[in-house]
Design a protein around this nucleic acid. Structure first.
Length: 598
RNA sequence: GGAGCCGUAGUUCAGUUUGGUUAGAACGCCUGACUGUCACUCAGGAGGUCGCGAGUUCGAGUCUCGUCGGUUCCGCCA
């Protein structure tokens, strides 16, 4: 097809180009046909430029009048000053006086109107993703993603990291998330797994002496989805030899500082604050505390303060080994008071009940410093004093108390804290609060399966002072083991996770034993890495950052679907190309697979 | 696996509480008019399996049960 090829994009012409003859290629975003004169907004990735067809150009006018939205056109003409400029767009000072007009392709009427303030529901937009991506906001998401992608590559290249492509078809590892499986045709009855992460490969690359590895790679997990979780997602995967936790933190902080400066023009601190897992759980009730409200509603345990009271609810909890703890609202950082009315308070009680608590005790601190609450009548003088002191109760404060099993209470208060923060709009999006959470437990006991499982992954090393406990048989002792393991948390979201790894096969075997793998099973499943560790594995460690989540946060969207070109729905389906889909019998036969009925 | 919300014109929604005449609006689409618009304006028009399937009823968009899809959260996500 012969047509006038563009000399310029639709986003770059301005008053300096007046008088030039140019050609634009693009999509019809909007046509305004005034009867004689016709205006058309032409759109491409770079912007929108208005072209004008004068009524005296009869031949062009009829063609222009017949254009529909999303037609692809080529327009040639002179750049002229607009009689009435549009200040809302960069090209709004000028327009093109059309001399030649060609239709390069027509378009059906689109199922939804392609406009910035799109009205269509997400499922329709997903089905016609290519139309949705024509919107500036969506295109900007992809462009931002590309920008950061390039930055990450450049950053690690500058620091002597080597990018290595690890296999997409790998051995299934039964620990952790469900694997996506790929049947083997050659080895009938055997399966590959898609990587949940290239964890084993990157560690083996350290054994190879690669020293510094990075890969921006796809990972796959067959688990239920959320707004911030997709079945396939991208992570920045990093591994380094001869490093400590501090080395990993340092280079990671530099990466994030660069990105936040470049994209948001925000200066992150030289070093990110650190907080142990235990502190985070005890004070914030969650392992990813949102430090935009750092000093607000920190959890206070008052078990001791009220232990002399006769209140049956508290007594029962104490006797069964539980705790009593609470948070107080206090004043918000901008000084505005958090006014908790009876109605709001009842709402929080319902919230607590939904979390499985019998109720929520609330106390109001009067202007004279006295307490007001329905539970006061159950408490003795000593308890009331102790409680008041523990919370440093000030006039206007509102205190919310939960009691029960320790982890449940902390978790409940953590959730209440976030709910109150959200209800009173205390989470300021202009804040950028990074924090490293360190010293995670190495194991936790899975009651249902009746065994220990790795809190992080099974290659995470215990901190030196806990190594002797790997030989323990005592549940409490094993649960007390802390790991060289860390998460990077940003505004209450987990952005990354990593650890210093085990690099000797003896320690690795002990860890396998604790999670219930016999030496034989460990050899069957992870023998290759145990074997590799026998041949001079260097001390090493690394981290992986969620690339999609990072881009979502940089662009201010909650859903990572918005910044993934072709995302899947919460049921892991793609509405555009209709996958997953059935396959023909021949394909199954070749794989030796027979489907179960029903 | 569990819970909540949503599903009505091409699109976004109203109508469902309290079952009852011909299911409405806006945008989009089509036809006509219009020479400075940028949410063009004006006049007219077409367009509906009320997600699907049972049930209750003289009568169901509306009530009940089931089912499918979307979405949010919990479980899950080493």
């Amino acid at each position: 097809m012969l047509y006038n090829k563009r000399t310029n994009t639709c986003g770059e012409l301005n008053t300096r180009n007046i008088g030039e003859t140019v050609v634009l290629n693009g999509w019809v975003a909007k046509k305004r046909d005034l009867g004689g004169i016709i205006f058309i907004d032409v759109r491409d990735r770079y912007g929108i430029t208005q072209i004008k067809v004068s009524p005296d150009r009869k031949d062009i006018s009829s063609l222009a009048a017949s254009l529909g939205n999303e037609f692809v056109i080529s327009a040639k003409g002179k750049v002229i000053q607009r009689e009435s400029p549009n200040k809302n767009i960069p090209t709004g000072e000028i327009e093109i006086e059309v001399e030649e007009l060609q239709v390069l392709n027509e378009s059906l009427t689109t199922p939804f109107v392609v406009e910035e303030d799109v009205k269509a529901n997400e499922d329709l937009r997903l089905q016609y993703r290519y139309l949705d991506l024509r919107r500036k906001k969506m295109m900007d998401g992809l462009l931002l993603r590309n920008k950061v992608y390039q930055m990450v590559h450049g950053f690690y290249a500058k620091h002597d990291f080597v990018e290595v492509e690890t296999p997409i078809l790998m051995k299934s590892t039964p620990e952790g998330a469900r694997d996506y499986l790929v049947p083997s045709r050659v080895h009938k009855g055997k399966f590959y797994a898609l990587p949940q992460s290239p964890q084993t490969y990157k560690q083996i690359l350290m054994v190879s002496g690669l020293d510094r590895y990075v890969q921006i790679c796809k990972c796959f997990r067959d688990e239920d989805l959320r707004a911030d979780r997709q079945p396939e997602f991208t992570q920045i995967d990093v591994e380094m030899s001869f490093v400590t936790q501090d080395d990993v933190f340092k280079i990671s902080e530099e990466l994030f500082k660069n990105i936040w400066k470049e994209v948001l023009d925000f200066n992150l601190p030289e070093q990110f604050p650190r907080m142990t897992y235990d502190y985070a759980m005890t004070k914030y009730g969650i392992d990813k505390p949102d430090l935009r409200i750092k000093d607000l509603m920190i959890i206070t345990e008052i078990t001791d303060a009220v232990k002399t009271s006769d209140f049956k609810v508290f007594k029962d909890v104490i006797n069964s080994g539980g705790i009593i703890a609470g948070i107080k609202t206090g004043k918000s950082q901008d000084g505005s008071k958090i006014e908790i009315t009876r109605k709001i308070s009842d709402g929080y009680t319902d919230f607590a009940k939904k979390l499985g608590f019998g109720g929520l005790a609330t106390l109001k601190v009067n202007e004279d410093g006295s307490l007001q609450s329905s539970i006061l009548k159950f408490l003795n003088e000593e308890s009331i004093k102790g409680l008041s002191a523990a919370f440093d109760a000030q006039p206007g404060d509102f205190i919310l108390i939960l009691s029960g099993d320790k982890s449940k209470v902390l978790n409940g208060l953590g959730q209440l804290r976030l709910k109150i923060a959200e209800d009173f709009k205390l989470l300021d999006d202009s804040k950028h609060e990074f924090v490293w959470i360190t010293d995670f437990p190495l194991f936790h006991y899975e009651e249902e399966e009746n065994r220990f499982v790795g809190e992080h992954h099974v290659f995470t090393s215990p901190k030196d002072e806990f190594i002797h406990l790997l030989d323990s048989k005592d549940r409490k002792e094993i649960e007390s083991i802390r790991a060289n393991c860390y998460d990077l948390v940003y505004n209450g979201n987990e952005l990354g996770s990593g650890s210093i790894r085990i690099h000797d096969s003896e320690t690795q075997k002990k860890v396998f034993r604790i999670i219930g793998l016999t030496d034989e099973e460990a050899a069957e499943k992870f023998g290759f890495i145990l074997e590799a560790f026998k041949y001079g594995a260097p001390p090493h460690g690394g981290v992986a950052f969620g690339f999609d989540r990072m881009i979502a946060m940089l662009s201010g969207t909650k859903s990572i679907r918005d910044i993934i070109a072709f995302p899947k729905t919460v049921s892991a389906a793609s509405l555009m190309d209709n996958c997953p889909s059935p396959v023909i019998k021949l394909q199954l036969d070749e794989l030796g697979i027979q489907l179960k009925q029903g």
